[in-house]
Design a binder for these strands. Structure first.
Length: 438
RNA sequence: GGCCCCUUCGUCUAUCGGCUAGGACAUCAGGUUCUCAUCCUGAGAAGAGGAGUUCGACUCUCCUAGGGGCUGCCA
């Protein structure tokens, strides 16, 4: 059997929809699993939308997700001469004919129509949907060249697949009906039709195709929101396929090894952002410390925050990694370590600081921390434990946390204090007294 | 309207005739704990409906209902 060749053939619009990229993921996995080739074809015939920027966006998305391709990018516009050459053949063979036609938007002119068979059945075995067949009479002739002489999708798509020697076409469910047309085109062009596999759609809670109205729908949006490409990849893969056991979080190697196009589900899958969010957190928690550390530094840098000399980054990573859901959360969750201009959550200030006795408490604690030796998380905890006399550290811990970080939650308090250091801890405790009640 | 496809917990799914229907997310309740998060334990939660085939149907067949796709000089 000859080499398996699959392709991802999007038309660049500046945004890459998750349903579309899932098709790319499945194609990529199929190629990697079978040792075949994964090709990228840019169907850039819509000159209005297929700008260099839109094409670059497509490349960026693919690179971000780690979808590498094995041959140079194939541009559909570069193959127009071939498309049209095939039309001549079809015309000569009587498989196509010219016809005066009026388009939906009122244009009238001469187009080239492809002649479908008028009897018999057209059938194919879809690797995901199973056997499909349709009476030829139910598939009408269709246009393949516009009145302006430009090739139409069906023609261009099929000719390009022939030229790229594509063996398996794995694409969206919305192309199922086209397949009956395409198979006849392949045959009329003297080529063997590829094997087809049609992927169900990703739908919203109402069961309608998932669109931007339903939330983040484009790859770029997930990236901007701090999702990990690995998490999005894994989640999208699971939306319609599973390894057959109870594993869900898979390494790329496992995916490649286990992926089976025949086990891809026929039914539409509802997009569940909650599960993606969970998976993203899962990937962040599982990430190597060095990865987290690098991301932390990058995110802080991007937020204009600098890490002072001698700051115990490892401790911060230990504490923060498990609490991070999105990369974007990082600066907000730890900015108070790197600037004195950190925000105070008014609600918790109200609850924890503006209470009778808190002022005295904070001043007392400031004095005690000033003298604490050594100034470490362990020592700090010992001290507060001693003060609480086994009654629970809550009354001490909460005001301190709010005073030094401005927030009601976050990393372990004593680790927080150690990271801040004695001077800043004491200063912040005293400063917070101003907003504390009597 | 016509043609095609689909139907297991709220969601993603396991099951390829033997099921006390399993897992994950979400939800709820506990535990750990200085908060939050993590982690651990537990709970509730499903086979669209109806016929048939069979010793036995979630699994096979048919019908009904519901949902989706397509029906362009868009891709």
């Amino acid at each position: 059997m000859s080499e398996i060749r699959v392709r991802f053939a999007p038309s660049p619009t500046g945004k890459v929809h998750i349903g579309n990229i899932r098709a790319a993921i499945y194609n990529w996995l199929y190629a990697r699993h079978t040792g075949g080739k994964f090709l990228l074809r840019v169907e850039d015939t819509d000159l209005e939308r297929s700008t260099p920027e839109a094409i670059q966006t497509l490349f960026d998305c693919m690179e971000w997700l780690g979808l590498d391709y094995d041959e140079p990018v194939f541009y559909q516009t570069k193959n127009v001469a071939r498309h049209l050459a095939y039309v001549e053949k079809l015309l000569a063979d009587g498989r196509a004919y010219k016809m005066e036609k009026t388009s939906r938007d009122g244009k009238t002119g001469e187009v080239v129509m492809f002649r479908m068979p008028k009897e018999g059945v057209i059938a194919f075995d879809d690797v995901v949907k199973g056997h499909m067949e349709k009476k030829a009479e139910d598939v009408p002739d269709f246009a393949i060249v516009r009145s302006d002489g430009s090739p139409i999708f069906h023609l261009a798509n099929v000719v390009d697949d022939i030229d790229q020697r594509v063996t398996h076409v794995i694409r969206g469910d919305d192309h199922v009906e086209n397949t009956f047309k395409h198979i006849e085109l392949f045959k009329a062009l003297g080529a063997q039709p590829p094997v087809y596999g049609h992927l169900s759609m990703i739908v919203n809670a109402q069961g309608k195709p998932y669109s931007k109205r339903d939330g983040a729908a484009f790859v770029g949006e997930f990236r901007e929101q701090g999702y990990l490409p690995e998490a999005l990849f894994n989640y999208l893969l699971l939306l319609g396929w599973n390894p057959g056991d109870e594993r869900e979080v898979l390494t790329r190697e496992e995916m490649v090894q286990l992926f089976d196009i025949e086990k891809v589900h026929v039914t539409a899958a509802k997009f569940d952002i909650k599960k993606l969010q969970w998976m993203n957190g899962e990937y962040i928690r599982r990430a190597p410390k060095e990865t987290y550390r690098a991301e932390l530094l990058a995110r802080l840098g991007a937020a204009g925050l600098t890490v002072p000399e001698g700051f115990d980054l490892d401790l911060l990573v230990d504490q923060l990694q498990v609490r991070t859901k999105f990369w974007n959360d990082i600066p907000g969750n730890c900015s108070y370590f790197f600037t004195e201009d950190y925000p105070f959550d008014e609600k918790v200030v109200e609850k924890r600081l503006k209470k009778p006795g808190v002022k005295e408490l904070l001043l007392d604690l400031a004095d005690r921390f000033e003298k604490l030796e050594p100034f470490t998380a362990v020592a700090g905890e010992e001290m507060v434990k001693g003060l609480s006399q086994g009654q629970g550290m809550g009354p001490w811990v909460h005001p301190i946390r709010v005073a030094v970080s401005g927030r009601g939650e976050g990393i372990g308090l004593f680790e927080m204090l150690q990271l801040l250091g004695r001077d800043r801890t004491v200063a912040r405790l005293r400063r917070a007294v101003d907003s504390a009640g009597e």
